[in-house]
Design a protein around this nucleic acid. Structure first.
Length: 292
DNA sequence: AACCAGGGAAGAT
DNA sequence: ATCTTCCATGGT
């Protein structure tokens, strides 16, 4: 058991609330706690993280660190929960923008990342073009069928597992043919060592875009989401994203979804923290958990 | 019942 | 290069 203290503001309850939208995260809202599946030194480990502090005095209880590579585990927890990012300056930046009401409502929310970059990439492909409810269903089926469970948490299917799947296997889960090809194709590139996400992570956004977009099934939207939710990069704005378009439509009371030209104008005020604008816009059109 | 969905590839011009 | 069509199914 270990206590971790970080700089505020940081609203862990808001993080858990968004995690809870994903059926694969075992979140306990009342206990302010979540179990986290991590690959540590090549082994699947489950840690638990519980908030014991407040938004301005954030403090966490981490269990499961004792028997494993401490440094690697902490590094991955800091990445996942963005504990090393100072949200104060970012929050201040948006005080003089149209997004002020949204940033005030969700104050202290960091970027919500996926469990790891590889899972993020695969999940992005699964989520392309279909409604969120169905996308969650597909991802859940994929993970529960080809991943594995430990201590009540599902681990994402490994590339070595996905390589051996056929398009037909995934079609049984109601993937369409192309989506199945994309997922297997990416997993194959990773399993064969042709695509090294760990090495790619060290490159700037533009270089990562150049590399990933060559793969079949990966377009600009997918790379932008990967950079944002996979790597936690701060300045991405996926304009092709229906969620963003709907959030902007709602924010400005538009009759129709905004054009790309309009979005280019709006986003100017939000740089260099476009990822945060994106995340908070998403939050503004997502369901909220019960509040008491 | 028609229309939309946190896109992208392949085909057509 | 840029525009259009297809994918393929669930949700509303």
């Amino acid at each position: 058991m270990e206590i971790i203290k970080i700089e505020g503001p940081y609203n862990f309850d808001s993080v858990l609330e968004r995690f809870a939208l994903d059926p694969l995260w075992p979140v306990n809202i009342d206990e302010r706690k979540v179990s986290v599946p991590l690959w540590i030194a090549g082994e699947p480990e489950v840690l638990s993280v519980q908030a014991t502090g407040t938004t301005w005095e954030p403090e966490f209880l981490v269990e499961g660190l004792s028997l494993i590579n401490r440094q690697e585990a902490l590094k991955k927890l800091y990445r996942l929960f963005q504990w090393d990012v100072s949200l104060k300056e970012i929050h201040n930046h948006f005080q003089k923008t149209d997004l002020k009401p949204i940033f005030d409502e969700f104050a202290g929310t960091p970027l919500i990342l996926d469990r790891d970059p590889y899972s993020c990439l695969i999940k992005c492909i699964i989520h392309q073009q279909i409604n969120m409810a169905f996308a969650q269903t597909l991802t859940e089926r994929f993970v529960k069928t080809y991943g594995f469970e430990k201590d009540g948490v599902y681990f994402f299917p490994r590339p070595e597992t996905v390589v051996d799947l056929t398009v037909e296997d995934l079609r049984k889960l109601q993937f369409n043919g192309r989506k199945a090809e994309y997922v297997i194709g990416i997993a194959t590139a990773i399993a064969e060592g042709k695509l090294d996400l760990l090495a790619l992570e060290k490159q700037p956004d533009e270089e990562i875009m150049k590399v990933l977009i060559k793969y079949r099934g990966i377009g600009p939207w997918t790379v932008q989401n990967f950079l944002l939710a996979g790597l936690g990069r701060p300045n991405l704005f996926p304009m092709a994203d229906i969620g963003i378009q709907n959030a902007i439509k709602k924010l400005y009371n538009l009759e129709r979804k905004p054009t790309y030209e309009e979005m280019e104008q709006y986003k100017k005020d939000w740089e260099p923290y476009l990822s945060y604008a994106t995340m908070y816009l998403w939050r503004s059109v997502e369901p909220r958990a019960r509040t008491f």
